[in-house]
Amino acid sequence: MRNTIHSVLRYSFKTRKTWWFTAIAKTKARYARTALGSFWLGISTLMTVLCLGFVYGTVFNVSNFKEYFIYLGIGLVIWTPISEAINQAPLIFITNSNSLKNSTIKPIFFVCQEWAFQVQSFMQAFIMVFIVFLIFSPGLVLNLVAAPLHFFNLLLFIFWLQLLISLLGTKFTDLFQLLPIITNLLFLLSPILYVKKSLGSFGFIADFNPIYQVLKLLRNSIIYGLPYFQLGFIVLIGNLIMLFLSIYVYTRMERKVIFYL
């Protein structure tokens, strides 16, 4: 088992330049005909924050709009790669079936490529939104010191979640239809548009939502500058366990994936 997990990790590392490049190429292709290119990643997030901020800020009767915009903006930027990773994962092997059937490229390559695509999109959107927020709240830049562990947790979380869903989604094609519904529900159940105390006695829903736990630690470390080391390490351990578990499932299913396509 160890050798197989090791060989998956080794292959992923060996081909890192290729999947990183093809992920960049995917972004370039997506925005090839636009004047602003990948700037749209940040612009679309900022526009969403602006619209939702005014509407829900008014609905929830927030007292400080500046703080609410930052809370909502950072939360949305972190939520986007998570939901995109979940929703796109079932299609990873299907959209690359030609390459999988006719070349020696391993399925994990395309999972890494999709992960790199989500990471690159996230980084571009995050940098742009963060720079805009710095204009209103320059102190945020110092808070970044508290965030590296939680950034790392987010990247790990997206990877194993995507890997696991891509394997399940290839076999159970219903998942592709089901997952967008689940992610929408999770979005509404996670304190992103609102603060946790608004859930009242239903606050436990957020406590048992693993996506929210990853999101919350990163968002709060950036907004409040608190490192949350203890919780961060617990999430890290959970992520590492799930990473190895998902790679193990992959090693068991790698040879079968091609037959589902």
């Binding site: 093809t22 190429a25 995917k26 370039k28 292709a29 090839a32 005909r33 030609n98 390459s99 006719n102 070349s103």
Partner: peptide, 9 residues
């Protein structure tokens, strides 16, 4: 065989 990248590139 097909090109690895998309046709917009």
């Amino acid at each position: 065989r097909s090109f690895i990248v998309e046709e917009q590139l």
